[in-house]
Design a protein around this nucleic acid. Structure first.
Lengths: 344, 344
DNA sequence: GACTCTTGATGAACCGGTTCATTGACTCAA
DNA sequence: TTGAGTCAATGAACCGGTTCATCAAGAGTC
């Protein structure tokens, strides 16, 4: 492609049409691979486009077509290291299909979520994948039902007929808790995020299910919810380990909170595995390489990203598919040295 | 805002104008806060908009205005945990200014970089911030000079008149190397990324400057470049430590490669600090919480993101500013237990 | 009272593509 | 030879805003 040439101002279909000696409609047909164009004309038009360095204006296309080939992704906070994998894979799938990714952070606030949905609609975004701070929030639900484009929920509870991809947090948490109970621990503390959102609720369910299966009741004083940052995890761990009867095991179930927990233990002079067992709710280099290595729950965020993008593409294509599909990726427990038998 | 009402089809300026009993031009003026509208008419129009649930079509606005209020960010790979901080802060600044962020991954390939620049132009993107796989690549430079919108380089070398934000990798690497040399190490291995890109080149410069200042020559056999993934770092570390004369210190200068290095050492049964010192090129939870904690170079990626967005906004505003501005955030060396005096 | 200025409102043209009713050429059958 | 049927190409209307030349009304001046 030479692309050099007459970059005087911007070249438009009209210019290409004149250069090729055809009508604008024909140029448009060539651009859109319409079958009813003779090979000869097609070549003439393509030559003219190359010669003039023509580039379609996507805005103008969107204008007429009513769709933008944009897909928006709005999540709580980009700054969750492993979540980048989700976005990376989703972007790759979408780009492959000719879509461009719009990114926005909801900062976990309902009003921002609503404002973003509105902004996306104003941009004629073709599809949205997002998290929600609170699936029950009335105004958010209203905004979702007013959305004119398909919305796919990322790791959130079922809402009406929206598609969703989730990880099996319930099972992950159940496995982790059973594992600790099986090692003889009875005082297991759980650090979990915002219970208004699906992952934390599921994890708590799994935790309780494991206790129930063992016929024991967990000590409610050992539950810390609303652990949303590493600093929160630091504070929660410090306060838990300062209890008169501290826990013998810590289940740091919120994503990416392990650092704060370990920092607190180190500050207090406590060694993981020696008296206090630790299980992390998500795997990481830190979990793998810490000494002792930290038992962790793992799941495939890359697959989640791919599935999310693929499901959304299908929905945008308008295929006749049942509404409200859900896809759950499995979680597994990777047992390492940080979870040891309880020795009293 | 009721927003209920006549959501028959989409409401347009024309409908609002009819409802308010004014001309479409007046509605447009109200939308754009044009001063020449009487308070009374403004209120009537606003009431009509609220009543009809009107929402402007950004595509149509872009069409006429020639600008999209989109800013694109294209980086090598989202999957660099700390880089999320950059994007997060940049997005916040841009959104505040009324822009939406487009995200794409270049996968570090020149052809993708060129294709993305073209795609951004087609979308009338107002500004771009991006990394480059190779600042010297002819076709990429040609594509950049053909770009019609301002482009800001993220952590890359000066190219013609483009703005840039960088971290002072040279100084960080110099500090790290001096530190190790000062501890008596003479055989320091360096793991670094692609030398075609600025950060790796700068780090190597800093490394060599420190050696030069000490009046010593580094052993070229201890340099490993093209370390781009954690697996690369694993292999490089393994091969280095298998040398007949292995290094006494490892400087893992590439970003986010520490995990692979530590994994290799663990596999080989080598303990950090005991015989082999380690310095990481970027800080992380892993570096801080590993035992012994890893000496690391740190810089403020959040500030880089904010500065990048701010500089790009200024440029897009068309302010009369000198071309080719550069902003460098400082790096510092956080000395921890992984770097110890060389004992022969 | 005539004239000039100022200010607010109007609506047709425009941004750059796509779509579709219409046209013209050509083939084939009766 | 005529009529029906295909198929490629045409170009005006359209998508939904913004802009700007034009106009009307009211204020101010002499």
């Amino acid at each position: 492609m030479p692309a050099h040439a007459h970059r005087s101002q911007t070249v438009k279909v009209k210019d290409v049409a004149r250069e090729a000696g055809v009508a604008v409609g024909t140029v448009s047909r060539v651009l859109n691979d319409h079958p009813a164009v003779t090979k000869e004309l097609r070549e003439r038009v393509e030559k003219a486009m190359a010669h003039l360095g023509y580039e379609v204006d996507v805005t103008a296309q969107s204008m007429r077509a009513g769709r933008s080939r944009l897909v928006a992704c709005a999540i709580r906070d980009f700054d969750i290291p492993r979540f980048a994998l989700f976005i990376k894979e989703a972007e790759a799938v979408l780009r492959e299909a000719g879509y461009t990714l719009l990114l926005a952070s909801t900062t976990n606030r309902p009003d921002v979520e609503i404002a973003l949905l509105r902004a996306f609609r104003r941009r004629r975004v073709d599809g949205v994948m997002m998290t929600l701070s609170d699936e029950q929030h009335r105004d958010v639900r209203a905004a979702l039902s007013e959305a004119t484009m398909p919305v796919l929920l990322i790791d959130r509870d079922r809402i009406e007929a929206l598609d969703r991809v989730t990880a099996d947090h319930r099972e992950g948490a159940r496995l982790a808790t059973s594992h600790l109970l099986g090692l003889g621990h009875r005082r297991i503390a759980m650090l979990v995020g915002d219970l208004k959102a699906f992952p934390s609720r599921s994890r708590l369910e799994g935790f309780r299910a494991a206790y129930a299966a063992a016929g024991i009741a967990p000590d409610p004083r050992l539950l810390r919810d609303d652990v949303l940052s590493s600093e929160d995890a630091y504070r929660a761990t410090s306060s838990l380990m300062s209890l008169a009867e501290p826990p013998t095991a810590l289940f740091v179930a919120a994503m990416d909170m392990l650092g704060g927990c370990l920092r607190a233990l180190r500050t207090m002079g406590l060694a993981v595995g020696d008296g206090i067992s630790v299980v992390a709710g998500s795997d990481s280099d830190l979990a793998e390489l810490y000494w002792p290595p930290i038992t962790a729950i793992a799941w495939d965020l890359a697959a989640m990203g791919r599935h999310a993008a693929t499901m959304l593409l299908e929905r945008m294509r308008g295929d006749e598919i049942e509404r409200g599909r859900g896809l759950t990726v499995p979680t597994e427990l990777i047992i390492r040295g940080s979870s040891r038998p309880f020795a009293n």
